[in-house]
Design a protein around this nucleic acid. Structure first.
Lengths: 229, 229
DNA sequence: TAGTGGTCTAGACCACAGG
DNA sequence: CTGTGGTCTAGACCACTAC
């Protein structure tokens, strides 16, 4: 076979890192590159497209492709289901339902989910353990007007996350990460001191424009999220 | 033009979310889909490839493409340079160098960077302000055996991050996020109370297998990282 | 061994944006 | 108007892997 798009991509990346093509400078057009590498334009196109997706170069019609002045850095974090996350670490997973109620959504939840006043939600508080030690505290709100079947679902044995994935496998979400201090409930559930710094992930999920669920996940003290890029 | 790969991708995604093709089930092969949509196989291929990249489906030669049982959730966070991050919020950026020294790397830094004993590093402590308020505390270590020019560089007016991007524009990095408590120095620099929970990002950067720099970025109280997926 | 995805080619037309 | 990237096609061969 002729030259692969991977080889072309690697070679172009090499020229950039080596300094042959400096940040801000123009890269030859696809046609010229195709000749250089003795490949079809489609092959060069794929290499260049991926470099653009990787944030290495910037492409514009007519003006051509340029090396980004400062490379666009983006990290990808996997957001696994807690049970998987724990089991993949080789630990035993245990789940516990702490609280369950059907209520009108409090104002701060309504604001986060974009619900109408008086909207009914199912509110759940759960704990996830790894080898018996508290791993994650889950505070979840499910919009009953979108998922009425959540009213009667039983969350005593399996976490709501896994139930939700079965109900609405594909959805859009907004996720935000912050640090929070352990309050009385958290310090008790996560077996840490009052005021301990904890990593908190909030996620609100939408489906067809409707808010499905809002969840606040607080991890045990010392938890890290890691990624490479 | 005939059917676009975007239309095909959207249609397939629709069938999946609509439940026509359930999680775990087999999707028709590329050839069959190409006939169905009246498109070339390459077009269908691109649609399917992107669905696989998005974590919606799983592809295997010979056995075909399946809808993922639980969709692979991954969030992409942009990791901008602090100055940009602040200016894009419409705030005025200010930078201050707090401390600068040339030292042998302490053990914990050597461990993180994978340096040999006695390795010299440049250690910098900096502050980044948004509209006069402390925004981020930066504790940085630069490997002088890889970047000897860091010995004499002047970090009084511009942050080391921007200097580094100019020196080594493209590199690999490992990033980890955690919550930490404000110690005496942090509480003073970030104008918060002792023990306040703060979001901490650690990043170690490599270039050609060599550790270039390790940095610990601690954000002001209440900072959030946000992403959609 | 056969079926499915992975990739390349050569050619074509289109869309956008600089001049 | 013109150049560059964006995309589609029809056909081909290859690579992996289940059977």
């Amino acid at each position: 076979m002729a030259v692969t798009y991977r080889e072309i991509k690697a070679d172009i990346l090499g020229r950039i890192t080596r300094g042959d093509w400096k940040p801000g400078s123009l890269i030859p057009g696809e046609l010229e590159l195709a000749e250089t590498y003795g490949a079809a334009r489609a092959t060069v196109n794929r290499a260049m497209r991926e470099l653009a997706e990787d944030g290495i170069i910037e492409r514009k019609r007519k003006s051509g492709s340029r090396v980004r002045l400062s490379p666009l850095r983006q990290a990808r974090f996997d957001i696994p289901i807690v049970r998987r996350e724990i089991e993949e670490q080789g630990a035993a997973y245990r789940y516990a339902l702490v609280q369950s109620e059907l209520v009108a959504a409090p104002d701060w939840v309504r604001a986060r989910m974009g619900l109408a006043p008086g909207g009914k939600v199912r509110h759940l508080v759960c704990l996830h353990f790894a080898d018996g030690a508290p791993y994650q505290h889950e505070d979840r709100w499910i919009n009953l007007s979108v998922l009425p079947q959540a009213r009667d679902a039983d969350f005593a044995t399996a976490g709501p996350n896994e139930w939700l994935v079965a109900q609405i496998p594909f959805s859009e979400a907004e996720i935000s990460i912050a640090a929070t201090a352990a309050d009385a409930a958290l310090s008790e559930h996560l077996a840490c001191a009052l005021g301990d710094p904890l990593l908190q992930i909030e996620r609100s999920t939408r489906w067809k424009g409707q808010a499905v669920t809002f969840v606040r996940l607080v991890h045990h003290r010392g938890h890290r999220m890691t990624a490479r890029y």
